[in-house]
Design a protein around this nucleic acid. Sequence first.
DNA 1: CGATTATGCAAGTATCCACTTGCCTGTCAA
DNA 2: TTGACAGGCAAGTGGATACTTGCATAATCG
Lengths: 98, 98
Amino acid sequence: MGDVFKALADETRRLILDELATRDDQTLFELCSLLISRHGVNSSRQAISQHLAVLESAGLVTVRWQGRSKLHSIERGPLRDLTQRWLEPGKDTRCGST
Amino acid sequence: MGDVFKALADETRRLILDELATRDDQTLFELCSLLISRHGVNSSRQAISQHLAVLESAGLVTVRWQGRSKLHSIERGPLRDLTQRWLEPGKDTRCGST
DNA sequence: CGATTATGCAAGTATCCACTTGCCTGTCAA
DNA sequence: TTGACAGGCAAGTGGATACTTGCATAATCG
């Protein structure tokens, strides 16, 4: 399993997650179009494909084949409690705990 | 301000945060010793210093000078809600919200 | 003051990583 | 079956980055 932090370190990959957070089951071409039109990313199809491979290896994206289309979805599991390692209980400000 | 995700992408820097999460106000030499003895990191003092600079630039480490010693502490602000961008409200599991 | 300690700065190297290019495989429609 | 579509694989390139080496600066101690 790849490194979740390393996967999140790239801006293009974060934008891919943004798009997948908006809508699941998107193909490579759909993601390419959205990244170009909405975020000005001008990378090739292969570049995006490699980014998706990194995200998949990190467990942040799951894949489902449908015919010749590969449908990508976001996997939120690895994102939860990712930084909990440094936010020890008792000092958390998010849940209104004293 | 640097990139928080990029700062967290390096294992050595994550270990530094681990040590700073254990104890605040540590000097460069203290961190070097701990990284070597507890984690087998065998980087030079300058390497660790550069890592600390990256962490500081990302806002993850704050610095306080005391004489000729530079005391480093963890800054947890940028760590909170770092992944909230993809964990839209209503699907959060941490606060027991419905 | 001189010596030591704690750290910073700058340049060089070597590896990693994002990206491209070119070609190949598998699926669908006519 | 033929052509078009969706995607994968592999090699090469350029830029970023982790690390080292060598020297410089500032504070403390005798």
